[in-house]
Design a protein around this nucleic acid. Sequence first.
DNA 1: CCCTGATTCGC
DNA 2: GCGAATCAGG
Length: 207
Amino acid sequence: MSWTDERVETLKRMWAEGQSASQIAKELGGVTRNAVIGKVHRLGLSNRVGGNGGREEAEEEAAPAVGAAPASPPPAPPRPEPARPAEPPRAAEPRPAPERPAPAPAAPAAPVPIRKPVVTAGQPLPPQPSANEISPEALASVREVEKRARRLTLMELTERTCKWPIGDPATDDFWFCGLPSSAGKPYCEAHVGVAFQPMSARRDRRR
DNA sequence: CCCTGATTCGC
DNA sequence: GCGAATCAGG
């Protein structure tokens, strides 16, 4: 596969959308995420500024002051470092405002400058499956599984981890199930059972 | 272990 | 120019 104009365009578009390199690679096909990243760099669109959805870490290397480093300094061949241009003329978009597919009725993201435990308990919990419309087996399965949940944080979730929220988001007592999700589904087997119910299963409960 | 992007360097 | 290997971090 080669970087045709079309493929490059797709790459640019998806990268601008904030898609990860691996997602782009998957979409394009025939390339790895490394290839995508390499291309991104060659195209000079590294810094994904703007509504940056992904986090980046930029660690600085401390310059070894003087003398030799005590433990195993590689020969360090001559590394001609071209002078950096003052500032790359990056188009600065104030806020791309990427469309979010998820309405996310979650807790209000209050501007909390404080890092203290803002444990505002007593908030209304997100809708939890009520026992009276779920099969006893599924319920039991869920309770069982939640004892073994991996208790993942938001950042630890992946495409193949169960994203079922457990606990109160307003407190520290909150995590995601994190067990292996069943193929293509957002939840593990147990939570799929309570998340997706055939209409027939929720027979008219009397009001 | 899953993931992320960054960098290097032989091709 | 390309991208696998490697690195570095979450």
